[in-house]
């Protein structure tokens, strides 16, 4: 008999606290599978954010250091520069990476810091109860956009990954989703590549993951998974946004 499915070694034996249908647990597992496959568990250091994933350190069986809200890229910079042999990844939400941590993120990318950023985009602030995020879609109702996000008053959903891609130090940016088996397989490939970019010392890599948040979207898990395809990925198109890893010597 052949084992086709098992708990990754770098995923602790612990029950996830995430809501049913949430994308975090899938993203966690994919990262752990990649860490196992690449054999980097004993040199990986993860930086979890405040928010729903604040307890990520209870799940990843690697060294983990909590960061202040939005500062993951700066903390990662300090960690990686102080110990270049480590494989450092940040795990950040949309409020963290695309609002309060915009400066840290853009400049870490622009310096070409050898970091892997896993960016969870669920279009809301989850842990605090579903407020408007920078990635909240137009007309979307949240607790702080009770009349729907009005572009004239609250601005537009921000495509931060495309902005980061404009920096020369960012070498690999891809947007994926975890709302179907096909998308999950693609997401894993992207995460694997984003770690490989760091192992190869090429520069900053980021994988944006469109991640369902049924609780705050006020949907069932199935509805939320559909919503990612039918609505969210129209604003945030899936696919490779930037890849200069193959052309690293051309510049």
């Amino acid at each position: 008999m052949k084992t086709v499915y098992n708990r990754p070694k770098s995923l602790k034996k612990r029950v996830f606290h995430y809501c049913p249908g949430c994308g975090h647990s899938i993203a966690h597992r994919l990262i752990c599978e990649v860490i196992d496959e690449m054999g980097i568990q004993d040199k990986t250091v993860g930086i979890p954010p405040p928010g729903c994933a604040v307890f990520a350190y209870h799940y990843f069986d690697v060294d983990m250091a909590e960061s202040a809200h939005g500062r993951g890229a700066a903390v990662g910079t300090g960690l990686k520069r102080a110990n270049p042999e480590a494989i450092v990844f940040t795990y950040q939400g949309d409020g963290d990476l695309a609002a309060i941590g915009t400066a840290e993120t853009i400049h870490a990318a622009n310096r070409g810091e050898k970091l892997t950023a896993i960016f969870i985009n669920n279009a809301v602030y989850g842990m605090t109860g579903g407020q408007m995020a920078p990635t909240t879609l137009s007309q979307m109702v949240t607790t702080t956009t009770p009349y729907g996000r009005d572009e004239k008053l609250e601005g537009y959903p921000i495509r931060i990954s495309e902005m980061i891609a404009l920096t020369k130090g960012a070498v690999y940016i891809e947007r994926v989703a975890v709302n179907s088996p096909a998308h999950i397989i693609k997401a894993k490939k992207a995460i694997r590549k984003a770690f490989q970019v760091q192992v190869d010392g090429l520069g900053y890599a980021l994988v944006e993951i469109l991640s369902p948040c049924p609780t705050n979207w006020k949907m069932t898990p199935v509805e939320s998974w559909k919503w990612v395809d039918e609505v969210m990925s129209k604003e945030f198109p899936l696919g490779v946004i930037k890849d200069t890893t193959g052309a690293k010597n051309v510049d």
Partner: peptide, 25 residues
């Protein structure tokens, strides 16, 4: 390592990261 950070906030958080890695920062 020397980095001219993008802000004082980033600079202190880089110190935090380096301190986590166990070096004097």
């Amino acid at each position: 390592t020397f980095i001219q950070a993008e802000s004082e906030i980033s600079a202190i958080n880089m110190v935090y990261g380096a301190s986590v890695a166990g070096v004097r920062a």
